[in-house]
Design a protein around this nucleic acid. Sequence first.
DNA 1: GCATTCAGTATCCAACGGAAACTAAAGTCT
DNA 2: AGACTTTAGTTTCCGTTGGATACTGAATGC
Lengths: 124, 124
Amino acid sequence: MKPQQQSHALAYCGAARDILTIIGAKWSVLVVSLLEERAKRFSELKREIGDVTQKSLTTVLRELEKDGIIERVVTPIVPPRVDYSLTPLGRSLLVPIKSLRIWAMENHPAIVQSRSRYAEKEAA
Amino acid sequence: MKPQQQSHALAYCGAARDILTIIGAKWSVLVVSLLEERAKRFSELKREIGDVTQKSLTTVLRELEKDGIIERVVTPIVPPRVDYSLTPLGRSLLVPIKSLRIWAMENHPAIVQSRSRYAEKEAA
DNA sequence: GCATTCAGTATCCAACGGAAACTAAAGTCT
DNA sequence: AGACTTTAGTTTCCGTTGGATACTGAATGC
């Protein structure tokens, strides 16, 4: 979106989209949520998430690091040790994430139901 | 993610990811926000958003309709008229969206700053 | 010497998303 | 009569992104 085409009511749009790009990334909310408990290693995150590829996990961790949401600490030993933890900024992100999670829990059934209604409607 | 691989703490994950897939879609939050004011026509939304293609707008509107977040009302005249409006479910989604928007407004500068710090760090 | 661990890369391929052109159907202009 | 306009899309093409799989390097345990 070109800024000059936005209406006054949409001034927040750039920032909002930017944030949505972050938390909309496939594994970011899960990673942030897992790091709420404590700092964790790469392999630990991978194990806990289950079916995420190294590449995808690396990508999302790097992105969150760039954005200042997590911190990456490398201990140069062999085998290498890398710890990830939430920054204060990352910790503050837990607030809107929680709000979203609550909405998700409450309304997910309704969405699933709506989808199946739509599916059988278009099957007819 | 295969459900049986999730830890107990991540039971919400499926629902949360599902919701994030919706609101993470490129134009959905903007569309939902624009429909907060009142029901709007396809062309109206396209004009207000600015640089979205018909295809992308159609896709996101169809998706939000499937999920029961917006309602699509066709008036069979020529030229066709299609009105989109928020359902009660869609209206309830405005709550977490607002929470996210507030966080975005407050923390976007910090994120931008963190990114440029990262950029010059890796340039070195 | 061989396998394993850890934190990634590299390569390949499928899916998604955008740009631009096309469509239908009626009313209006010339 | 023929051309143009509007609305809400669809179609085709194409570039970028994201996932699956395989590979790397260095030390340690068997």
